[in-house]
Design a protein around this nucleic acid. Structure first.
Lengths: 185, 185
DNA sequence: GCGGAATGTTTTACTGGTAAAATATACAGC
DNA sequence: GCTGTATATTTTACCAGTAAAACATTCCGC
């Protein structure tokens, strides 16, 4: 809850005046830097600072929608991958897809198994790998929980007009390709 | 490390064919949903799914750059707010600006005080509030750590052309205003 | 088909966050 | 100026993640 109206520093020189509409918390942050360290190039913050804040804010909002279903974000993410895969998924593959440690998958599976939403089974082909699959209850739950998740994000994304949405989407794709390239390097 | 080349599901029907260049992990995710639950509207993911993944990827990359300075993201964020504020900041205000709990600020301050980077002091006007300020060492450290952080983000943001950057920035601003509005509602 | 490197998972020890209770101070109305 | 309510911070108990060690299985070269 960053209180935007309550400026972090006496904002006298709006360096971020390129906003025709409303200002956001990142505008305030950049103005504050501009007064204290004017030589600093904060254009990076204009894009990625907003992305970080947006992700955090939306996560907080949508986590709340998960609560009535008795699962957390970690479990939801695992159930989602399983739901859109037609066959069981290896634990390590889950970890890669979700960019978390293998240990995190183990812990999430303990919770999901305890609540009967997913099951583990050692692969018969390769007894090192554990294959994970949805139970019927898990399938029901993810199908029930998904609409609210997608709905919230759709409502927020709707502040962008039709053309803007496509342009933004493609800009974000380019950024993501670059970030994932560096991460896998 | 989502391995994009290793598709989550046999991707036969590219519903996300609007990419002139490369595909990213979110394209794969949307295609997978389209095969399993074709009636589902996943346009929300196109924008916000990418934002979540981007934030996570960039955070992982830039956290690594913080390591040599002996601080974590939490401490870095506190030092940043302090550096761009000319005067001491109340603990609760830090919590609001960073969207974390008050308890998180207390814990971060314990670490920052232990390493001599910031100091706490009860306000004389209102003895309930704790005012936080940088030490000279803290100021030196944040000034030293900042360039790498901004540099990484600037490099990534540079995959966008000049015009695209401005358009993206303004789209993100609109999204952020909406998300923060809902969060503070 | 044996020994050693590689791979997949779980366990262990630890870290950084949260919510809610406890504590301390300020303020408002009488 | 006292009482009750609101506000600011810390403490407590807990939770979800990580890295690295431990363990199990497979694969490779001979």
């Amino acid at each position: 809850m960053p209180d935007t109206s309550d400026s972090p520093v006496t904002s006298d020189s709006p360096v971020t005046s390129d906003s025709p509409g409303t200002r956001d918390s990142v505008d305030d942050t950049r103005d504050a830097w501009a007064t204290v360290r004017p030589e600093l190039d904060t254009t990076a913050i204009a894009v990625l600072g907003r992305i970080h804040r947006l992700s955090r804010a939306v996560t907080l909002l949508s986590d709340a929608l998960l609560e009535p279903f008795g699962i957390g974000r970690g479990e939801f993410d695992v159930l989602s991958v399983l739901r859109r895969s037609d066959s069981p998924v290896a634990a390590t593959r889950l970890a890669h897809l979700l960019t978390v440690s293998n240990a995190a998958i183990t812990k999430r599976m303990l919770r999901l198994e305890a609540s009967g939403l997913a099951a583990r089974q050692r692969s018969s082909h390769d007894k090192r790998v554990v294959l994970v699959d949805l139970t019927p209850a898990g399938r029901d739950l993810i199908d029930a929980a998904l609409p609210a998740q997608l709905g919230l994000e759709a409502e927020i994304a709707d502040v962008l007009g039709w053309g803007d949405r496509d342009a933004t989407e493609s800009a974000l794709r380019r950024l993501l390709v670059e970030a994932e390239r560096r991460l896998n390097a």
